[in-house]
Amino acid sequence: MLKTLGAAIGAALLLGAATTGHAAGVISGAGATFPAPVYAKWADLYKAQTGTNLNYQAIGSGGGIKQINASTVDFGATDKPLKPDDLATAGLTMFPTVIGGVVPVMNLPGIKAGQLQMTGANLADIYRGAIKKWNDPILAKANPGVTLPNLPITVVHRADGSGTTFLFTTYLSMKAAHWASEVGANDAVQWPVGVGGKGNDGVAAQVKQTPGAIGYVEYAYAKQNAMTYALMQNKSGKFVTPDAKNFAAAAANAKWASAPGFYLLLLDQPGADAWPITGATFILVHTKQTDAAKGKEVLSFFDWSYKNGDAAAAQLDYVALPPAVKDLIRKSWSKIVGPDGKPVYR
């Protein structure tokens, strides 16, 4: 009886090993949750065409970095770009995939989407607790002709560590010196005021339920929920709408070519239409691949996605990279080499 059971287990294990061995066309990745929907969509389309499976686990940027460092996955994904020095130390190469934007949203009775104009400095003062009421003279001066309600401002921020928070706080640090010195920028920070919501939906719910609340969410979320957003002042002094076109404008003007390791924040970019709180999400792979064929499979997937994935990305409200940037990325892949020192990708 025990023997048969043992034999059965052994057979099952062998079978399991055999199937995993067979499925050579499996790429595994882990990391950021923000791009997970578009990676899943691309994986779906890619599998239909090539038969190669992509197994992506949306465990968060921190987890993605840890997993690629431990080599338990073929690629990691992060919303927060690693600095060139850190990439070199870890032996990783980084490249961007899609662009997204962070949008300030609010719940202000009587104020419609796009009616309120916001500058980076004022946003920082609100999140610092320095501006406490919506009819504060500073906000009133920035919004002539708009009747702002006499409501206390309830600040809502992300409670969970998030690439969205990283972009938002980095932007505030760029625009306000006191924010940079008192709070700083990270996936999570010590917020001076406000309540934390879990995830985009948590922030959105808190904003919707509290008159006078202000929060920040990813663009796709603000769009799909038709939330009241503010126009943001960009580097050229223009107040712009958060939409795909303006995110693309921010990405188009960015100087990718002179950014080593694609370490580039698309925040506060020049250009009349550029949305100021824009950011890319990134892929991490080992510069020295232990398995050249596997490395090639990973890069082929992203190459295919750059070529064929733009429409799918747009459907999900992500913004594709400009073609010139895609070419730069493909060029950069030449330094990803196999055990023999030759580039794995063509």
Binding site: G60, A159, D160
Partner: peptide, 17 residues
């Protein structure tokens, strides 16, 4: 607003770099 030990871990563990 407050936090508990478990909620803090759940919120921050995934993105703690």
């Amino acid at each position: 607003s407050g936090s508990t030990i478990a909620s803090t871990i759940a919120n921050e563990f995934t993105e703690a770099t």
